[in-house]
Simulated scan of single mutants.
Amino acid sequence: MTEGRIARRFQALRAEGRAGLVTFITAGDPDAGTCQALLNGLPGAGADLIELGLPFTDPMADGPAIQASSLRALHAGASTKRTLELVRNFRRGDADTPIILMGYYNPIYSYGVDRFLADAVEAGVDGLIIVDLPPEEDEELCLPALKAGVNFIRLATPTTDDKRLPAVMANTSGFVYYVSIAGITGTASAASSDIGAAVARLKRHTDLPVAVGFGIKTAEQAASVARLADAAVVGSAIVTRIADSLDAAGKPKAGLVEDVLGFVAGLAQGVRAARG
């Protein structure tokens, strides 16, 4: 695979001597127009990489906040095709910020793997995080993705032992996403000492950058992770912020985009100050 946006972004972060901020929102949440405005505004608010959730009816690894965001998006008409359209529109104004699609295999399988990868590359997608495809299933999507020039980013968890890690790392590219707690997203936070030890262990198995997520809700927590890892990932806290700015009918209140981007800016400030 040729070097892409993800590798270039982490090289730039290393040159700046800091960790990155990876932000997650669900494609089409709470509606296509609001989501597009959020997506387009994230880099300016300080997001270094963006994870865009592929809406799915049964997001089993996600906690209540992200599950709800997926259902809101689907209710508003989100689809895999429309997710790629969001990326395509984003690329008209931003050629550099990496976008990673995160989700489950079913929507991609239904779309058709070859067609999906061709359309994803054309739209400007840089990577995939597919949480329900283990290394034993690499021929399904991972290897075709790598062949198409799309990074396949793997999750490692506190229960991924040294015996398992080589298999997890075998075809991983872009970065490794360390899930700092066992369980579903958005529920708890890990201790810094545990994160530091886990990042060091992963670094013994890979030269790839390590991004750490799950449970980061504040600028202070983002900063503490940024001192230990190559990037801090924030998802549920941003998605919750979106939900908190909806009215009783689930429609966005005035100022939603500005409020959410302001929250992201605070997280980015924490990450940037971590090694200052």
Results as ranks from 00 to 15, higher is better:
182 A>Q: 13
185 T>R: 00
187 T>H: 14
189 S>I: 12
189 S>P: 13
190 A>Q: 04
192 S>V: 13
192 S>M: 07
193 S>D: 15
193 S>N: 15
194 D>V: 09
195 I>S: 02
195 I>E: 03
196 G>Y: 05
198 A>Y: 02
199 V>H: 09
199 V>W: 00
199 V>F: 01
199 V>N: 00
203 K>M: 04
205 H>K: 00
205 H>Q: 06
205 H>R: 05
208 L>W: 06
208 L>A: 07
208 L>N: 10
210 V>G: 07
210 V>W: 06
211 A>F: 00
211 A>E: 04
211 A>W: 07
213 G>V: 08
215 G>Y: 00
215 G>A: 12
216 I>N: 11
217 K>D: 11
218 T>R: 08
218 T>N: 07
219 A>T: 11
220 E>A: 15
220 E>L: 14
221 Q>D: 09
223 A>H: 00
223 A>I: 01
228 L>K: 06
229 A>Q: 03
232 A>I: 10
233 V>D: 06
234 V>T: 01
237 A>E: 06
239 V>L: 02
239 V>Q: 02
239 V>N: 05
240 T>M: 12
240 T>E: 14
240 T>I: 15
241 R>G: 14
242 I>A: 11
244 D>P: 13
247 D>I: 12
248 A>P: 14
249 A>F: 09
249 A>I: 14
250 G>S: 01
251 K>H: 11
251 K>V: 10
252 P>C: 06
255 G>F: 11
261 L>S: 10
264 V>P: 05
